[in-house]
């Protein structure tokens, strides 16, 4: 269970989050939409403890994230996968080495087991063929998929996806949506997805919320939201949206 209560955060002299409240029940997928620059990525960074709120509460499994010490944060992060916007791959490591990184630094797996696991996840995101390539040499969509593999490689209980299908063609997009749903159904993962894509929201989400002016302006189930008259819901999920 992920729970944010009345979170406020100022960044670069602007009030980015202004009373944000949202909750993701165990095993559910919450889709967060909203205009560019409204603080969607900032919200995700609060949940994994990279940013701390000025006020308000951020809880995972009833534990207050901003009050965690280093060891507790590490323990939380081991249970959480995070797909960064654009992948955030380490530039001088190959795709496979990037995906192996979370396993090498902390698990007691041997080299063979790590390799097997890395290739298994790379296959899931359709990147097995590019395992040896370096991040500067691959396309944006490929970086994103490698980042996705890195987020999933540790079999996390929670996954935060920041724009999992940005810049992907419709066929690969569809595969990624199916992967997200499969991860939820098979492993019972609780997740939060930030996306601009109606297809992704409708396909992957249990609930959808739209962020505006630092708080959730409207939220509901997928059915409620696709039929809502709220202008933001119509802008992001109506017939004209894609």
């Amino acid at each position: 269970m992920i729970e944010l209560q009345d979170v406020h955060k100022r960044l670069g002299g602007r009030q980015i989050l202004d009373g944000l409240t949202l909750s993701v029940p165990q095993g559910m997928t919450f889709v967060l939409m909203g205009p560019s620059g409204t603080g969607k990525s900032v919200t995700l960074k609060h949940i994994i403890g990279i940013l701390r709120p000025d006020s308000g509460s951020v809880q995972v499994d009833g534990q207050e994230v901003p009050r965690m010490d280093r060891a507790q944060l590490m323990a939380l992060r081991k249970r959480m996968g995070y797909l960064f916007q654009n992948g955030a791959l380490i530039n001088w490591l190959s795709v496979a080495a990037n995906v192996a990184l979370p396993l090498q630094e902390h698990s007691k797996l041997g080299k063979g087991e790590v390799d097997d696991r890395v290739h298994e996840v790379l296959r899931l995101v359709g990147m097995d063929h590019a395992a040896k390539q370096m991040p500067p040499d691959i396309s944006g969509g490929m970086k994103l998929r490698a980042g996705l593999a890195r987020a999933l490689v540790t079999n996390p209980e929670y996954v935060l996806y920041d724009e999992p299908n940005a810049g992907l063609d419709p066929i690969i997009s569809q595969q990624i949506h199916e992967l997200i749903v499969e991860v939820r159904d098979r492993l019972g993962v609780t997740s939060l997805i930030v996306t601009h894509s109606r297809a992704c929201a409708v396909h992957c989400g249990d609930r959808i919320g739209v962020l505006e002016h630092g708080r959730i302006a409207v939220q509901g189930t997928v059915a409620e939201m696709t039929h809502s008259d709220h202008p933001l819901a119509r802008a992001f999920l109506g017939g004209g949206a894609d």
């Binding site: 960074k45 590490m74 992060r77 959480m80 960064f84 654009n86 955030a88 380490i90 530039n91 979370p102």
Partner: peptide, 17 residues
């Protein structure tokens, strides 16, 4: 600096590195 502004430093922290 490039790693910081492209979230690579944050990614390391998230991986508890």
């Amino acid at each position: 600096g490039t790693m910081q502004v492209s979230d690579e430093i944050a990614a390391l922290e998230v991986m508890s590195v």
